[in-house]
Design a protein around this nucleic acid. Structure first.
Lengths: 128, 128
DNA sequence: GTAGACCCTCTAGTTGCTACAGGGTCAAGA
DNA sequence: TCTTGACCCTGTAGCAACTAGAGGGTCTAC
């Protein structure tokens, strides 16, 4: 299959596929006589792995690691588990941080709502 | 005050201050005879506004907007309120997304935990 | 033969900084 | 007087993870 077909089946732009190849997240496919990339179903699977992992928020480095684990025939489930665990940790931390942020923002915003003074109290607070 | 002092009082690196100046988030200060930047307390306040806004996650464009509003003597509180509101929306949305993500990750991870098969079921799922 | 849909490579842009390289300035101490 | 070390300057390149464009080639259908 050609790159545009792969792109359609994986929901990932042509440019992104070429980019993944350039950074080593997808192995280079064989080329047709005219230089066009020709992909197999194997490629599609690997691209799915990359796309889904990225959708889950895994950074490229860890996707690379995941690929290495997956290529290993004895695919170490434990390693995958650990990798996912640490990512869950990161996501949970980020959620906590954002909740904290949300609170601060709402508090700041509320100063605007009840302010009668000429100057904006929220801006005053930020510049203090 | 010189740039390093400003840096210390605002908890923001010297490089970042110069960067803010270069992208128009902080107005250029006067220069001493030797070319060094010389800041006033006014500058400190504006830098605080930028730093605090960024800490709240506002993108540069919106900080720029906030500065414009703040410079306006009739600092339109309503505009600030609207700006903060839309940002709170964004943050809330992001929190929801991350929670969803966290769930997916934990689900995926659990497949690793109870898998007895030779191949890692999480990786299998990602490549499907 | 030409229009339109593909494909190619290479480069630059995005966001918000951070980290050099390669210089100049200035005050204190030997 | 010289030198050391802490500052300061400009300008450029790097990060993540793409995206968008320039400037070309290829192939099929009408």
């Amino acid at each position: 299959m050609r790159i545009s077909e792969l792109s359609r089946t994986c929901g990932c732009s042509v440019e992104t596929i070429r980019y993944y190849e350039s950074v080593g997240l997808l192995s280079a496919p064989r080329r047709a006589a005219n230089g066009y990339r020709v992909y197999s179903d194997e490629h599609r699977k690997w691209l799915q792995l990359v796309r889904r992992s990225r959708d889950l928020g895994l950074p490229q480095d860890e996707v690379r690691l995941l690929i290495k684990i997956a290529r290993d025939e004895s695919a170490a489930c434990e390693d995958v588990y650990r990798l996912l665990s640490s990512h869950v940790q990161r996501v949970s931390t980020r959620i906590r941080e954002l909740k904290q942020l949300e609170k601060s923002l709402i508090r700041l915003q509320s100063r605007c709502a009840d302010g009668r003074s000429k100057k904006c109290p929220a801006i005053d607070e930020l510049m203090k």
